[in-house]
């Protein structure tokens, strides 16, 4: 199996096995600034992004800073 299935904000997606968080964000075209994410309800801190490997079935919640009062 070369690909795994993950869910990002409710959308199912195939990514290569051994994809890291930082690779995923780059593939999605997101700047790292202003982003945060949780995998299976656990927040993955920025310092872990280069090393954290996604697993099959991971439920990823991706957040970003926006305008607000």
């Amino acid at each position: 199996m070369k690909e795994i299935t993950i869910v990002i904000n409710g959308q199912s997606q195939q990514v290569a096995k051994a994809t890291k968080v930082i690779d995923l964000l780059a593939a999605l075209g997101h700047a790292e600034q202003g982003m945060a994410l949780a995998i299976n309800q656990n927040i993955i801190s920025r310092s872990e992004w280069p090393d954290h490997v996604l697993q099959d079935g991971d439920d990823i919640a991706l957040f970003q800073a926006i305008a607000g009062g």
Partner: peptide, 10 residues
């Protein structure tokens, strides 16, 4: 300045 957070709209 304040900011808010939201779930990214894919």
């Amino acid at each position: 300045v304040t900011m808010a957070l939201k779930r990214v709209d894919m």
